[in-house]
Design a binder for these strands. Sequence first.
DNA 1: GTAGGGTTAG
Length: 371
Amino acid sequence: MHSNGISTDTYALCGSITASSSLRNVEFGKQIHSHVAKSGWISSVFVGSALIDLYAKSSLIADAAVMFDEIPLKNSVCANALLSGFCEAKLWIEGLELVRKMPGLNLDYDHFTLSAMLRACTGLSAIDLGRQVHGYLIRKVYNLADDVFLQSSLVEMYGKCGLVMKALQVFNFAGMRWGGEKRRDVVLWTSMLGVYGRNGHFEEGILLFEEMLKEGIEPDEVAFVTVISACGHTGQIQLGLEYFDCMSRVYKLIPGPEHCSCVVDLLCRAGEVERAVKVVNEMLGEGRNKCSVSLWVALLSACSDGGNVELGEYAAKRALELDPQNVGVYVQLSNLYARLEMWDEIGQLRDTMKQRGLKKDSGLSWIQVTS
DNA sequence: GTAGGGTTAG
């Protein structure tokens, strides 16, 4: 269109930018950006928001922030686009700072803002602020029960802070108002399922999954990861395998590496290492190439827990053949050696990692203590 | 008629 000399307008520009965003083609988006800068449409808040979104989704958060600053007449939409970029990048403090600046810029909080704030609270385990946002929602948002995004953000926030009953209360409230209507979608159900899982309530999680099926909600890939993992924790091998099987048979979903490793983990937890190896081989035989690394890693992880050196080393070798840069494999193998006090082997492993220029990230965690 | 949100195991 442009090369034919036809002038573009903001509608066409927004369309092209969102298209390059969904195709994950940042380069094309950047080209449009420089074109926009010359055309004079750069001050359009519509075009600006689309560009912020493109940069934020391409992990170019600094570029997104610059774009935001350059929009002369800002509105909530462009602020929210940057805000969700911060949350996506786990820059929760930066996100909350932006939220604090919004009133001064004459920007109102809407559902998008509040849902992103809750995500930041979840990331920071900031229960006090999270409660304040919930209070604000109850007071100011009359149609809270209509918004599954806000509901699931609340469920996640309470769950992350360990308040399982509060999460359940929100989840039940979301279902209550609509009686027979299916207002709770699969993501909201999965959020609650995940809260149970992360807090060790695996039995309840499995029951909730069954309840979801009874309500006629179609489970997705994420729901299956969570429920198969829950089965692993309760030792319900048969049930876990049935879920794995019905994923493709009944729901026509293609199991990914994460499902395969859940199944391996489930079998190994139950001490069925032989059977796990058999499953790995079967899966590889079926040509699930994408699964192969994670299958060996899952097997290695299980061997690490059980102190099975021989099989662990074999699994590590196979995993590294496929992905030599995988630091996780070295860490797992090192854990296995440490468990059995095989210090010489750990030394060798460190040397190998150094030679290959690999480094393990150090861990970090924090919580807020409820006052 | 254009732009922005929530779920994944180990």
